[in-house]
Amino acid sequence: MLYINIKVNGKEYELGVKPYETLLETLRDKLGLTGTKLGCGDGECGACTVNLNGKAVLSCLTLVAQTDEKEILTIEGLQNGAELHPIQESFVENSAIQCGYCTPGLVMSAKALLEENGDPTDENVREKIANNLCRCTGYEQPVRAILEAAKKIRGENDR
């Protein structure tokens, strides 16, 4: 057992973890944060994407022991109280959600993307979310949602 300190969605945790325990297992099984999804466990579908110190990572390929002293943001931590994050709001408004299983991963990829590039092109978005498989939407409405979220966020920054 290894002992680590991590911050998840602003809350600090001291945890005893197995050396081979993935961040995905810790989030889902120990912390009950089931918003982060298991799609393949092989790092190929992106459903488990979370943000680690602001960067998008695949939590199924990240050993939780490696996240000691780091900050993790999951889909559950994106809202501000009852208020949806602009990316979430934009997904809702653009009908970018069907079954919703890839949605948390897509949203977390988009979050990291927009931190890095506040004014992405359609192509930039498609490149960045290429890690996230979606079987329902054909990507069109999610791409639209992310571009619109970028606009919303820029609008807020202007104010």
């Binding site: 889902r28 944060l33 089931t34 918003g35 982060t36 999804k37 298991l38 999951t74 889909i75 559950e76 994106l78 809202q79 949806l84 979430q88 997904f91 809702v92 408004e93 009908s95 959600i97 919703g100 299983y101 949605t103 948390p104 949203v107």
Partner: peptide
Amino acid sequence: KSVTRFDAVDKVTGKAKYGID
């Protein structure tokens, strides 16, 4: 009308519980 699906907010906030959850 393209009304918002009733489950959109649950799904986009990670609250929706799937079989696997």
